[in-house]
Design a binder for these strands. Structure first.
Length: 279
DNA sequence: CAGTGCCCCTGAGAGC
DNA sequence: TGCTCTCAGGGGCACT
């Protein structure tokens, strides 16, 4: 499930296999992947060249000549890879961009959740979740004052709060469990019960964890592969996610798994106790 | 407006 | 063996 570090890894791969290439044909094998009219999408892009690939949160932004931007979200299992034109096409490949250099950029997505939307460059912030997306989880963009302020105004649980991309961009289920474990915060803690100290520690954990995971090319669980078909290395670094029933690396207590807002959630009941407002 | 819950999808794995 | 059921989950959307 690509989260920010995985999407950034994909972006870097795409810069090498797609940037600078000119499109001379597009096959759309599963129409729902494209939210535009499929024929208009194809006609608008044929003849265009990919000039750059940017990222905002978990969204990829393919920049084309002719002032066009394709917003691509991988959701659960979307992936890109390249191969020589005419290569084999499996049943989960839904979109193929043919380049003039006789290579293809293929989009594969087993669960068909991923979406692509073509818009005029400059209007991409009106597409889906980009309308309300929060700051990037970096030292410069994700300010402590801002974080403390939005926490105080939310009575919901901290885990779904962090999964909400309008609060801070890029966190998914895996990194949420990791940063809450690092910061010793219970996933069901109401957001407005966090102390300023906890908020500060949590913010630091988010920034450092995303940075560290990006450096290690993301986490490979299930099927995530980067644009070169390689796995990330960060799965070896996970402390909480996927470790239910095992001893907490910090205190040895058995980690437990519960459901929070429909999401599987692993945490240490000893290190991450539920606290009241005055604790 | 904030929060909740359903839905989109398929494959893996469990249970019978 | 083979069927059915459950689970995995990001984000859009309807609803409270």
């Amino acid at each position: 499930m690509p989260e920010l570090p995985e999407v950034e890894t994909v972006r870097r791969g795409l810069m090498r296999i797609a940037a600078g290439r000119q499109i001379n044909g597009i096959d759309v094998l599963y129409g729902k992947t494209i939210t535009n009219d499929v024929e208009e999408f194809r006609q608008a892009l044929i003849g265009q060249t990919i000039t750059d690939i940017d990222r905002r949160g978990k969204y990829l932004l393919f920049r084309f000549t002719n002032q066009l931007t394709m917003v691509s979200h991988l959701r659960m299992e979307g992936s890109y890879f390249n191969q020589p034109t005419g290569g084999e096409v499996d049943k989960h490949t839904h979109v193929i961009f043919h380049f003039t250099d006789q290579t293809d950029l293929c989009y594969r997505d087993t669960r068909k959740f991923g979406r692509m939307t073509l818009v005029k460059t400059g209007t991409e912030n009106e597409v889906g979740g980009l309308k309300t997306i929060g700051p990037e989880p970096t030292e410069q963009d994700f300010k402590l004052d801002y974080f403390i302020d939005i926490l105080k105004h939310s009575r919901g649980k901290i885990k779904p709060f962090l999964l909400n991309q309008s609060h801070v961009a890029g966190l998914g289920n895996i990194y949420c469990d990791e940063v809450l474990w690092m910061a010793k915060i219970n996933p069901e803690q109401p957001a407005n019960f966090l102390s300023d100290t906890q908020a500060s520690i949590l913010r630091k954990s988010i920034i450092s964890e995303i940075k560290r995971a990006t450096k290690l090319h993301g986490t490979t669980v299930h099927t995530f592969k980067n644009a070169f078909g390689n796995a990330g290395e960060f799965q070896n670094e996970l402390q909480a996610y996927g470790h239910a029933g095992e001893p907490c690396p910090r205190c040895g207590t058995t980690m437990i798994k519960i459901k929070v807002a429909q999401r599987g959630t692993t945490y240490c009941p000893q290190c991450q106790p539920l606290r009241g407002q005055d604790d």
